[in-house]
């Protein structure tokens, strides 16, 4: 049998396979060049950028929990200027689409970062992280309020002609209404889920383990929640979906595609296996070959339910 067709397209971004690297788990790409072929994966999403460099939180910032980990890095990043000057030139030479994840501390900052990236060669698209507190409005998280999320997405839409992916938070009562709000405001695709808010406690010291007290849970522990949310959103929104949450191997990735995802992101898996993204793409292809499936896109939303 000939090789299966692994290519997919999300919001006009053509990818050789559905495997993207999740923001914050793959640095700026170069960190992983020793461990995998960057040109073997579908797309890279870089560490979330803000207008100014951000220091992030005090330590401890991470702690392992059963089947997962909590992180409270605090969006530490080099800022947009350093990214363009120091990180992007390297990425331009890699023949894999680069999607830049961005966030703002205020509504206006989202617009500014997006417009700085607009028209930049080497940036295939942007992913908007709406799971951050709105500093000006008392720290209400943009991504948990449909109106606030819509404002952000509308503003970013006006600030860029690049394909725009909006990354949804799972820390909401109704993820479908958030998805609909972002779709109406002009998103080209949705990625979900971001981390689930969690906490770990040191009993003997009677203290929270993370300096930030709470953090975002990721890893295999959150996969069932992510699958459910992808499935719900796919049923109700026409936009392409990128599935994220505890994907460790090719089978996990294909489950997300059955639930309705066009592409997937590998996150925490890259921490324990820096070659995970390439391995997962290979395992997906193997599964298709073994099962006589000709194209990976035929599996999108193909769940019997």
């Amino acid at each position: 049998m000939h090789k299966p067709d692994m290519s997919v397209e999300v919001a006009g971004i053509k990818m050789r396979n559905p495997v993207m690297t999740a923001s914050g788990t793959f640095g700026y790409g170069a960190e992983f060049a020793d461990y995998l072929d960057l040109e073997s994966i579908g797309a890279m999403i870089t560490k979330g950028l803000s207008l100014k460099p951000k220091a992030g939180n005090p330590t401890p910032r991470i702690v392992e929990t059963p089947g997962g980990m909590l992180n409270a890095i605090g969006l530490q990043n080099v800022g947009i200027d350093a990214f363009i000057a120091e990180k992007l030139p390297y990425l331009k030479n890699v023949q894999t689409p680069v999607v830049v994840n961005l966030y703002g501390n205020t509504l206006e900052e989202y617009g500014e970062v997006a417009s700085r990236l607009d028209g930049l060669p080497g940036v295939a698209g942007i992913e908007v992280n709406i799971s951050c507190p709105n500093v000006k409005q008392g720290g209400i998280v943009f991504g948990t309020d449909p109106k606030a999320a819509q404002e952000v997405v509308r503003l970013v839409r006006k600030s860029t002609t690049k394909p725009m992916i909006v990354k949804l938070s799972p820390n909401v009562t109704d993820v479908v209404s958030m998805a609909i709000a972002c779709a109406e405001a002009g998103a080209d695709a949705l990625s979900l889920i971001n981390t689930l808010t969690g906490m770990a406690i040191d009993l003997d010291r009677r203290r929270p383990i993370l300096a930030n007290v709470t953090g975002g849970l990721s890893g295999p522990a959150i996969k069932p929640v992510a699958l459910r949310m992808v499935w719900q959103v796919a049923k109700n929104v026409k936009l392409p979906i990128i599935g994220i949450g505890g994907i460790m191997n090719g089978r996990d990735a294909l489950e997300f595609m059955l639930a309705g995802a066009t592409a997937i992101q590998v996150g925490t898996a890259s921490f324990l296996d820096p070659g995970a993204a390439q391995r997962i793409a290979r395992e997906m292809e193997q599964y298709l070959t073994e099962n006589g499936i000709e194209s990976v896109s035929s599996l999108i939303g193909a769940l019997n339910a």
């Binding site: 220091a55 992030g56 401890p60 910032r61």
Partner: peptide, 27 residues
Amino acid sequence: AYMACGVGACLGCVMPGANHSDQTPDY
């Protein structure tokens, strides 16, 4: 230090540099 990846990606294991401050972050 606690670290998840060991290759500079997770930013979990940072230590403040000598001139670190909130205004001039140097982790």
